[in-house]
Write a protein that binds this DNA or RNA. Structure first.
Length: 491
RNA sequence: GGCGCUAUCGUCUAACGGUUAGGACGGAGCCCUCUCAAGGCUCAAAUACGGGUUCGAUUCCCGUUAGCGCUACCA
């Protein structure tokens, strides 16, 4: 029926890719894919002073990691002529005027005492001749939109998320279209490009909701019907403030999540759940499911809190989702994903071993980076120091630990080194110890009491993957060496 | 200050006038078990406040409060 939508994500390269921006990208992408439309990436780099290459790199790096594609790409800085031309078209129609008031200097107080500022005195009604003369004389000016002041006109539009919106022109200030250096402002450049690129739906943060009235004015001045708008609730910090790089540091940067070992689609999934819901209790959703389920109706109007803490930078739900995705990842794929993290920890990640280790830790890590702490003993030549008290089992003592280790040592010297055989012979050993009693006592040793000293001796800690599989991966030589060391520590 | 937006468990959310207010994360407990996980089960936990409208309000209207946004020659 209607033409497929054209949507755009338009970041400005003035900082790293913000997770709120990432979410805006994702929602645009979902809308485009849901309707077989076109996803446009437009770099809004009109603020020459604040743009940085590092920021641009960060945006592309972040988007690349998210693993979602766009179909067309533009840079506003290469389209300035178009924006200027459109601005002057508005001027020609008498809908904009030159304002020669010098720019307000830096840190001047905002006098919000009585009402809002609407325009600078004397400039709106400068005669066309006077205005042109001063321009020709080289006097700098900003080009301002002439917001209708006569009558009680209101600007209105229908937002896909927030519904019908209306604002009196009397509450809209004469905003700038061109700066005194001739560079278009965000409002001008954005509308000009949305028009020229035939953007049909503008999906962006709610911080633009009130800007939209200005944009509608621009579209109308250019004789065009405004696109459809859909504004997204904002992402907040736990204290209710808007997420900011300044205040909240790395938790707002997409690359932080990548570096911590989030799976991109797990993270996309998490971001989708912030401010949107399929309304049927589904939470873990594949990209396909998200595309199918996405609609503006599912978008909330209330801002959403990213629930990070000072001692834990990641939202627990994001971590949980990531663990879900990790457990759903085939061993071979997961081993490959884990490898860089193992290498980064300074370990030698031999592919065959990675496969074995991955199998044992897949259900024990929530972030890929945790491999370094959870599986270190698989890669280390020598175990880091640990407390010998750890070797002593629950309701046991030093003698019991020693006995268990000595018995284990004996068994492990001869038994076949695969986990079924290891389990059988170590359980047998536990029974034998129990039958004989230990150091004159009639107490029996439970399997748990038998296995804990071995586990600690071999892994250096109590919390570890299943013992027999672990022994198998470690190999006889390493196991015996570590048990010997543990025995020495107990003596 | 002006204008706009918003308000359900700690957090993310469901319930488009009638539900014991549902789910998830996190928390607590139990089960399973060689530890840790994973898995299963159970529990605690919310409609900001005050007025209306209605036989009946989480839901509709108004007010209060609170939060957020915009109010730049930033985007």
């Amino acid at each position: 029926m209607s033409a497929p939508p054209r949507v755009r994500f338009a970041p400005s390269p003035t900082g790293f890719l913000h997770i709120g921006s990432a979410r805006t990208f994702i929602f645009n992408w979902l809308y485009a894919r849901h309707h077989d439309g076109t996803m446009i990436l437009r770099i809004d780099d009109t603020d020459v002073d604040r743009n940085t290459q590092a920021s641009l790199d960060s945006i592309f790096e972040g988007l690349k990691w998210l693993d979602l594609r766009w179909d067309e790409e533009y840079h506003q800085s290469q389209r300035l002529a178009l924006h200027q031309q459109m601005a002057w078209r508005i001027f020609e129609q008498g809908l904009a005027y030159r304002d020669y008031t010098p720019a307000a200097q830096g840190a001047e107080e905002k006098p919000y005492g009585e009402g809002a500022w609407l325009f600078n005195p004397g400039m709106r009604d400068l005669s066309p001749e006077a205005s042109r003369r001063r321009a020709e004389a080289g006097e700098p000016f900003v080009l301002r939109f002439r917001v209708p002041r006569d009558g009680a006109r209101a600007v209105q539009f229908r937002d896909g998320v927030y519904g019908y919106q209306s604002k009196e022109c009397a509450d809209i200030e004469d905003f700038a279209l061109l700066r005194s250096n001739g560079i278009p402002t965000y409002h001008m450049a954005s509308c000009a490009d949305d028009l020229e690129l035939l953007v049909s739906h503008i999906i962006r943060g709610q911080d633009h909701l009130t800007n939209t009235f200005k944009h509608v004015l621009i579209f109308e001045a250019l004789g065009a019907a405004p696109p459809q708008f859909a504004h997204l609730p904002l992402l907040l910090a736990p204290d209710g403030s808007k997420l900011s790089k300044r205040k909240h540091g790395p938790v707002v940067s997409v690359t932080t999540y990548r570096d911590a070992g989030f799976l991109p689609h797990a993270y996309v999934n998490f971001l989708c759940l912030l401010g949107w819901s399929p309304k049927d209790d589904r939470e873990k959703m594949s990209l396909d499911e998200l595309v199918r389920a996405f609609s503006f109706e599912g978008i909330n109007r209330d801002n959403a809190v990213v629930n990070f803490q000072e001692n834990d930078p990641f939202d627990p739900k994001a971590v949980w989702l990531n663990a879900e995705y990790i457990r759903a990842t085939p061993i071979e794929d997961l081993a490959r994903l884990l490898t860089p993290f193992v290498c980064a920890a300074g370990f030698h990640a031999e592919p065959g071993k990675m496969l074995q280790v991955t199998k044992l830790i897949r259900e024990r890590i929530r972030l890929l980076s945790e491999v370094a702490t959870v599986a270190d003993f698989f890669f280390l030549d020598e175990l880091p120091p640990y407390d010998p008290a750890e070797l002593i089992p629950q309701k046991g003592d030093r003698q019991m630990a020693l006995l268990a280790l000595q018995y284990a040592r004996e068994v492990l010297t001869t038994t076949d080194f695969y986990h079924q055989a290891l389990e059988a012979s170590l359980r047998q050993a536990a029974m034998e110890i129990s039958e004989r009693g230990w150091h004159g006592s009639t107490l029996k040793i439970k399997t748990g009491q038998m296995f804990q000293p071995i586990r600690v001796a071999v892994c250096g800690r109590k919390a570890a993957p299943p013992l027999f599989e672990t022994l198998e991966v470690l190999g006889r030589e390493t196991c015996l060496k570590r048990i010997d060391r543990a025995i020495a520590m107990l003596k």
